[in-house]
Amino acid sequence: MAFKPYDTSKRKPQLVSLIDMAFLLLLFFLVTSLVAQLTQQEQKLSIPTPENKPGRAQILIQFLSENEFLYIDQTTNSIVQEVNDQFGFESPGKQRRRIVERMLAEKKYDKVEVNKKLKDLKKFATDHPDQQYFILIRCPKEIYYYHVLQLVQSISGLPNVNYGCVGGTVADIRNATDISLRTEIDNHGKKRENLVILFPK
């Protein structure tokens, strides 16, 4: 059987496949760049889930109402210390009640004041990137989560300032089973006097 000789002069590049490949490449780059962008955004997104044990924080912000907050940080230690020193003879329950009353009298702030405090904290955290902050926000279910998000918005954006949100009322602090100062060693080996608040189960 005679075969037709292969005519190389009639050979043409497969343009359809090449264009197909070119568009596939374009599509690939479009998708991957979008995914890369999303990954970057996801990395910045911090949604820590609560765990069923006492957590650790540098600041506790307890919603009292939409515009009132209990802002507890390390400066609250002095209240606990003073109550312990002055009323050490009283029962632990009575001392706890005194501590909470003083906290509510001295550490209650409105939205503007809290935002100012958080702004100052952010400034400090920016200047001291080695310092790590975790802010625990407790919000009763009666208050719309929108208010929590507003607060979160003023905290977020810094790599060394993290936050966590849990549900809870000031009644948990009022009825706490323990409000005391405890000397502990932190991750850097430094001795710290931490404030422990254990909520009722």
């Binding site: 069923n52 006492p54 506790l60 390390q74 625990l136 966590g164 006097e193």
Partner: peptide
């Protein structure tokens, strides 16, 4: 992994002794 908040209580870091 971001720090996780606890629901049983809170330990607020105090000043360095």
């Amino acid at each position: 992994i971001p720090p996780r908040p606890g629901i049983q209580g809170v330990v607020i870091s105090g000043p360095v002794i």
